[in-house]
Design a protein around this nucleic acid. Sequence first.
DNA 1: AGCTCATGTGAAGAGCATTTACATGACCGG
DNA 2: CCGGTCATGTAAATGCTCTTCACATGAGCT
Lengths: 218, 218
Amino acid sequence: MSWSKKGGGESRGYHHGNLKEALIRAALDLIAKKGAAGFTFAEAARWAGVSPAAPYRHYRDRDELLSDVARRGFDLFQAALVRAWDDGRPDPATAFDRMGKAYLEFARNEPAYYSAMFEAGVPLDGHPDLRQSSDAAFGVLRGATEKLIATMPAQNRPPVMMMALHIWALSHGIASLFGRGDSARRPLPMSAEELLEAGTLLYLRGLGVPDSSKTTRS
Amino acid sequence: MSWSKKGGGESRGYHHGNLKEALIRAALDLIAKKGAAGFTFAEAARWAGVSPAAPYRHYRDRDELLSDVARRGFDLFQAALVRAWDDGRPDPATAFDRMGKAYLEFARNEPAYYSAMFEAGVPLDGHPDLRQSSDAAFGVLRGATEKLIATMPAQNRPPVMMMALHIWALSHGIASLFGRGDSARRPLPMSAEELLEAGTLLYLRGLGVPDSSKTTRS
DNA sequence: AGCTCATGTGAAGAGCATTTACATGACCGG
DNA sequence: CCGGTCATGTAAATGCTCTTCACATGAGCT
C-alpha cells in the first residue's frame, strides 16, 4: 500500500499531499467562524499545518482561494437545487416549493459557501469558471420556473426570466436578511421557510396560478 | 470671526478640527471604491491627512467606524424612504411604489452606505444605536405597508409584518443581486426598478389588491 | 496669562500578504 | 535500484495594516 498521498490520516512529510482541499476546508471553517472578511490566508495555512507561503503554490492569492470556494459553493448549490427540484416530481408546484426550501437550507447549512458566493464581493468577471457555475445554478432555477409556467393557462404566462429573477431575489433577500442564525438577526413572526413559501404562494397567485395547496399539510 | 474649526477650507493646524466627519467621508469613498472589506483604517487616516493613530481618538477600532457608517446610512435611508412615502400621498399605492424606487435608488446611489448597512457583516448586537436606526428605517416600510393594507378589503388582509418582510426581502434581493453597476452584474431583461415594480404588483395582486396602475404611464 | 483636556504625533510590536531563493521528495525512465 | 526533474513546501525578507503608549499641541475656559 503505497499510500503516500490521500488516505485517512494526516500525512506529516514535507509534502502535505492534499493541501488544496485542506485549504478549502480551512477557509470554510474560518469564513463560517469569522466572516468572509475575517478569513486570512496565513491562518488557513496554519490550520493546514504548512508555512504561510505554501498556499501560493495552489492559489495566486487570497482572492483566488475565495473565488474557488465560491465556485465550489455554486456547484454544490446547483446540485442541491437539482436534487430538490427532482425534475418537477411529483408536480412542478410541489417541486418548486421544495426547491425554495432547499435554497434556504443551503444558505443556513452552508453559510460559508453562501457568503463567499453572494456576499464576499468576488467579481464574476475575470473568473469564467465561477461565472459558469453561477450561471448553471441559476439555470436550475430558471428551468424549474419554465416548467412551472408551462403548467399555467396559456393566455397570460409571464416571461420566464422575469419570474425566475423575482423568485431568486425573494429567496436571496430572505436568506440574506433572515436566513442565518449568526448575527444580524431580527425577531421574526415566522420562519424563513414559511416566509418564502407564503411569499411565493402570493406571488404565484398574483400570476393567476390557482392555489394548489392541498388544504391539509403545510 | 474666530473660525478655527469648521469652515470652507482645510484646517492645517496640529488639530484637524473635523476629523470624525473626514473619516466618515474617507470611509465612504474607500468603501465605494474597493468594497467594505478593502477599506483600511490607515488609508482613511492618510486620506484625511492625519497620522494612523489619530482615528483612534474617535473610534475604538475599524469596526466601530464601519458601524457608524452603517448607522448614518440607516438614518439617511430612513429619511429617503420617509420622503418617498410622503405620508401616503396622493394615495398609498402610488406612494408605496415610489418608496420602492427610492429603496433601489438609495442602494444604487449610495453603494458604500448600503454595503456597510447590509453586507459588511456589522453585527447589530452590541450596537444599540445601529439597531435603533435599522429598526427605524424598517419602521417606515412597515408603517407604509400598514397604511396600504388598510386600503384593502377588510375580509382578507394579510399580516402587516409578513407583508412588510416580503417587500423588504424582495427589495433587498433585487438591490443586492442586480441593483449596483459595480461588479456581479448579470444581463437583465429589465431594469431593477421595473423588476421590483412588477414583482410588487404581482405580489399585491396575489393579496387581492386590484391593479391600480393607470394603464398609461409606466 | 495659565490650566486642562481633547485631539493629534511618533514609535513600536504583532500579524498578514506576497515574493524570492532554496529544500525536499514523488514519480518516472533506465 | 539509481538518478533526474519538477511539483510542492520552507525560510526569510519587504511592506503594509492594526493597535497601543508615551508624549506634544493648542483650544477654550477662568
